[in-house]
Amino acid sequence: MITQEKYRSKVKKLLADGSVKMVIGYSPGSTADRRRPLFIRSFEEADQLVLDSNCIANLSGYLVTEGLLSDEKRVAIFLRPEGIRSLNILAAESQLNVDQIIIFGFDSIGREVNSLPGEHADEFSEFIGSIKENPPEKSREPLLYQLEQMNPQERFAFWKEEFSRCIKCYACRQSCPMCYCRRCVVDSNQPQWVNTSSHTLGNFEWNIVRAFHLAGRCVGCGNCDRSCPVNIPLRLINAKMSEEVLGSFNHFAGMSTTQEPVLASFKKEDSETFIL
């Protein structure tokens, strides 16, 4: 709780001296172990700030809210390592000016919360590099191993079953920091590439499109997975895609604010096994 108190006063100081116009953090949620996003503009709001191990949502997507950064004023935000990586991608994809963002980096082991040193995105590059080299043990899903053991028919059946629950609410898209397009491909209806109704075909189309759009961009923050009201294990798809991209192109999403998108950049050493 010391960390939380420290941040409350730090936030007040930043607001008071005008360094930032807003701080994006966490406040208590509807139950004891849930947290909801908090947008702090005043001292009163700063007093609601919570920082503990239950603060797991990746808040970086709020930074690209239309108009938030257009006045060129600065915003501070609480981010876990995955959040910093997605911030890097947003910067690399020209969605925000990273100099406007002050990062309060944190991580947690068990119930304990640690601050990460640094404020500017560039200061975390080395730290993110170390995550790439030594990924935390817990990070690989046991279910992934099971999926890999299946043959294509079994895997298809697995996902058909999972996707059959999809109600096309697009909560995954709404919560994902990478889904910032002004108009999503599913909302384009001339032509209507992706069926909007929630039958098997449309559900497959949507989820496969999303998987490809996140290839080389997903940082595994888990926002989509947690926001899914019907509990489709979306994290599995994206985690597998991340592994493929890392294995094939040595691309670890969100390494820096200047990282080139893996599917748009070409290197001579890229393997070309798929080109005839």
Binding site: E93, Q95, Y180, P261, L263, A264, S265
Partner: peptide, 15 residues
């Protein structure tokens, strides 16, 4: 121009 998100992926991808 109305829907372009300005990510510049196409700029990089264009050979």
């Amino acid at each position: 121009e109305a829907t372009c998100a300005g990510c510049w992926g196409c700029v990089l991808a264009c050979p």
